[in-house]
């Protein structure tokens, strides 16, 4: 029995397999519609998330399975003071697999140590969000046809953005990757990631505050939201939230085949006029999120 807590616990071969299954699901959806018949997914969301929860639920329904769960801590036994481990043990009795989001870092790992069914980390605070990373990888693969030899620009909140951290860690395992880090000084990528991931893996990278200046180099532009909930004070959030906004004008010098990704939801960091640009992939990315979660559920449930 296996869980998915951290993207790096999957080998690149396993990621390739998941991507291959997701692509097969996209090509042959009918083949998969009863694969999880009589199986149940529990979605335990201790903090609200529309997108991730609905994506998991849609994934399970499309596999013919069923879904139960809660979408905020107040409506769970956590409000009565139950531990994460006890909740996981209990829900293991009702469901075949659990997707858990929790505001505290490490909660899904604690759940996986106690549960008797696989746990999928659906986001633990600012720490890990492996299914978002799988979504990003599938999107890159589908848009660019490869996961190597790419120059990827990460723009916005690189300090608190867990999706950025995980994607950098995941991409650093492929060859020919160059990273461009675009952010205000206050929201730069943490030093340990530069040292322990980029430097350690010999990944070429540069830091800049000027999005337009590096635009022509990029194969992928990964935009992020400056998240209110990751700040300790409101003042810093308000000062930095509009730092980098993508507009059609900024895309003038971009490559024809640039892929613009965003984990969503966006606030205003990508102007809606960019949406019509064929290089805007973020809504296709949402759809990919459902397909890769389907592939992951199949893998963890060991359904052939």
């Amino acid at each position: 029995m296996r869980s998915l807590i951290d993207i790096l616990s999957l080998t690149t071969e396993e990621i390739d397999e998941l991507i291959a299954v997701a692509e097969d699901i996209i090509a042959n959806p009918v083949k998969y519609r009863d694969k999880c018949r009589y199986k149940k997914l529990a979605t335990l969301f201790f903090e609200p998330s529309t997108r991730t929860r609905l994506s998991f639920e849609a994934a399970m329904y499309e596999l013919g399975g069923q879904v139960l769960g809660f979408s905020e801590a107040n409506s769970s036994s956590a409000a009565k003071g139950e531990s994460v481990a006890d909740t996981a043990r209990t829900v293991s009795c009702y469901a075949d697999i659990i997707a858990m989001r929790h505001p505290k870092e490490g909660a899904p790992l604690v759940a996986s140590m106690a549960a008797s069914v696989p746990i999928i980390n659906a986001g633990d605070g600012g720490h890990n969000h492996p299914t978002q990373t799988l979504t990003d990888l599938l999107t890159i693969k589908r848009e660019k046809g490869r996961l190597n030899n790419l120059t990827i620009g990460f723009c916005g909140d690189l300090k608190f953005g867990r999706t950025v951290h995980s994607l950098i860690e995941a991409m650093s395992r492929y060859t020919g990757i160059k990273v461009v880090l675009i952010s205000p000084y206050e929201l730069q990528l943490p030093g340990y990631l530069k040292k322990e991931t980029l430097d350690a893996k010999g990944i070429e990278y540069k830091e800049t505050t000027d999005l337009s200046a590096v635009m022509p180099e990029l194969d992928i532009l990964y935009m992020t939201r400056v998240q209110r909930e990751r700040f300790f004070n409101e003042e810093d959030y308000l000062r930095l939230k509009d730092s980098y906004i993508l507009t059609p004008e900024k895309l003038v010098d971009a490559k024809e085949d640039l892929a613009i990704l965003h984990p969503l939801p966006r606030v205003n960091e990508i102007h809606t006029s960019v949406d019509a640009d064929p290089r805007a992939c973020y809504f296709r990315q949402v759809l990919n999120g459902k397909f890769i979660r389907m592939a992951l559920i199949l893998k963890l449930l060991e359904v052939e």
Binding site: E105, L109, G125, G126
Partner: peptide
């Protein structure tokens, strides 16, 4: 302060 060990 965001670690699960602070609440459990």
């Amino acid at each position: 302060p965001r670690c699960i060990t602070t609440t459990e």
